[in-house]
């Protein structure tokens, strides 16, 4: 019975990634190599981030929200953006279109993030007898994270790979990318400082990720149009 629950939660956490890969043209062009490379880059980035967190941050004595520490965390969070930049521009991909490239990178990135951050707690926690909503929320968070990573990758590919984009849209693209990059800090602020409960935070994440996805989509298709 508890293995059942574990499988459910695992489906919720990792299912959307698989569905995304198989439903979109990514599977037809066999872009799995790109995703794997992106995942490898994610691992490297996570390591760098860990080292930075360990060297620059103090161990918090309590669970309060310290603005200076949080600012440092935001800056360290930008290492993610650097990693994505590396994955999008520097990696030699097989000849795939920009359109598919960012999706493959975003997917690999989000999947690696889920595996790294959610698989172990899931394995340890969800198989226990005790029932909690925690792992269902965690799965939903993984969904929101997938959407956000894809949006960020889309905006990144607009920023770094597309040369001729409408000038008026450039500031909007940068603003949205900045917002997406700071999203982890925003949720941590909501959780710690405003003391939102987990359901509320997850709801916010899902909602904001959908909004951001919609905006990025619009921006992407706007840039796609011939000028």
């Amino acid at each position: 019975m508890t293995v059942f629950h574990f499988l459910n939660c695992a489906f919720l956490t990792f299912g959307p990634h698989v569905v995304y890969y198989s439903a979109t043209p990514l599977s037809e062009y066999d872009t799995i190599g790109t995703s794997v490379k992106a995942a490898a880059v994610y691992l490297g980035t996570a390591l760098v981030k860990l080292v930075c967190l360990a060297t620059l941050l103090k161990v918090p004595e309590n669970d309060s929200f310290d603005p200076y520490q949080e600012l440092m965390k935001v800056f360290i969070g930008f290492i993610d953006v650097a990693g994505l930049y590396f994955a999008l521009t520097q990696l030699t991909h097989r000849n795939i279109s920009q359109n598919h490239k960012f999706q493959a990178v975003g997917l690999g990135w989000a999947f690696a993030d889920s595996v790294l951050h959610r698989l172990a707690p899931l394995w340890i926690g969800a198989r226990g007898l005790e029932f909690t909503w925690e792992y269902i929320f965690q799965g939903l968070e993984a969904n929101a994270n997938l959407v956000m990573t894809l949006s960020l990758a889309a905006l990144g590919s607009l920023m770094w790979l597309r040369k001729n984009k409408p000038r008026t849209l450039v500031p909007i693209i940068y603003a949205c990318a900045l917002l997406l990059a700071t999203m982890p800090s925003i949720t941590s602020y909501l959780r710690r400082s405003l003391e939102w409960q987990t359901p509320k935070v997850v709801g916010f994440e899902l909602f904001s990720s959908l909004i951001m996805a919609f905006i990025s989509w619009q921006l992407f298709s706007a840039c796609q149009r011939p000028m």
Binding site: N8, L129, E130, F131
Partner: peptide
Amino acid sequence: NVYQVASVTFDLLFL
């Protein structure tokens, strides 16, 4: 150990 457990019905519904 006192565990709060979910029912099988819940798990099926969730699936």
